[in-house]
């Protein structure tokens, strides 16, 4: 029997188990082969219509999903609005139901409100893929990050991953912690204490405020972007001072006694979290992450579509 996901939606890493993650990785392996062929398209999602609904700015994630859908031969509609549906006077449920009334099968949604994907899945009759909901979760990013670590280091289990930067406002951090822990990695968060949630330790991660200590400890450093747009108050005095304490430059990298892998979910603030020479260094797998993003999203779309077919049959 063909393997299936345990869920009908991808709302967060919270909602899936280790087998789901492994199945997504296995499926992504196949799709990665596909997208590196001269004919990059497979008919897996033919006759399935996916709506990409983006209530927040996005380049990378939106393009990555769109490409994944196109490679799978899905029909696509794109809807983006930087203002939330509520501020436009229409509720999110109405916006989505209007789109669904045009016979859309799946919704990929990015939204500024934490829990928006959960809310949508509960209140509409569609399959939902969370492409980032505020500061809550960004499951496909976490999956592609873990997949990229596995690709680079052979396995995720037992590896030491440091997530560095603005943990408080980062959906990438939450999803990454959940995903890496489910795969057996050791995780550390590092950043200014003002940007580290008080109870983050309860997620099973180590906490470190000193960048040097974190870098000495880890096999992989995942550098997060400082999300100034989400900070309504000042959590540190200046970007300059932040960079002095938590930025990585070539010297920092070379001073370490071992080679560590550098990751970044993008978009990079070059010269803030990492300098250009680090971003483009051979220890950096930032562009591999982007490439793997398409394969992972193809896997997620495909596996969820299979679930839908299964549900219809039953």
């Amino acid at each position: 029997m063909e393997e299936k996901l345990s869920v009908n939606h991808l709302l967060g890493i919270k909602n899936i188990n280790q087998n789901d993650i492994k199945l997504i990785f296995k499926t992504a392996d196949n799709f990665k082969t596909v997208i590196n062929r001269s004919i990059k398209r497979v008919p897996s999602l033919r006759d399935i219509t996916v709506a990409n609904i983006f209530f927040e700015n996005s380049t990378r994630t939106r393009v990555s999903f769109e490409l994944a859908e196109k490679r799978l031969s899905a029909d696509i509609v794109n809807f983006s609005s930087t203002s939330s549906s509520v501020s436009k006077g229409e509720t999110l449920i109405d916006t989505v139901n209007n789109i669904l009334a045009m016979k859309v099968d799946m919704v990929v949604m990015r939204h500024p409100a934490p829990g928006a994907a959960v809310f949508l899945a509960k209140n509409t009759n569609t399959q939902v893929i969370n492409a980032g909901d505020g500061t809550h979760e960004h499951p496909t990013q976490a999956l592609l990050d873990a997949y990229s670590i596995k690709e680079k280091l052979g396995d995720v289990k037992g590896k030491k991953i440091a997530i560095i930067g603005d943990i408080l406002h980062s959906r990438v951090a939450i999803s990454n912690i959940l995903c890496l822990k489910k795969l057996g990695a050791e995780v550390m968060v590092c950043g200014p204490a003002t940007l580290i949630p008080k109870y983050i330790g309860s997620m099973g991660v180590k906490i470190e405020y000193n960048l040097q200590n974190a870098l000495k400890w880890c096999d992989v450093a995942n550098m997060l972007r400082i999300q100034l747009e989400r900070q309504d108050i000042k959590y540190f005095p200046s970007l300059r001072e932040y960079t002095m304490q938590y930025g990585i430059n070539l010297q920092t990298l070379q001073n370490l006694e071992k080679e560590i892998v550098i990751m970044h979910p993008g978009p990079i603030n070059r010269g803030v979290e990492i300098t250009s020479d680090v971003a483009d260094h051979n220890q950096s797998i930032i562009l591999n992450q982007v490439e793997n993003g398409v394969a992972i999203r193809m896997a997620v779309l495909y596996l969820l579509a299979m679930k839908k077919t299964e549900n219809v049959k039953n």
Binding site: P114, Y199, M203, D232
Partner: peptide, 21 residues
Amino acid sequence: SNNGTVNESKNTVSLGLKFFP
């Protein structure tokens, strides 16, 4: 409270909502 909406605790740390400690 800083416009927080949920308690700050181990139960809420992964919700992404602002804390009202």
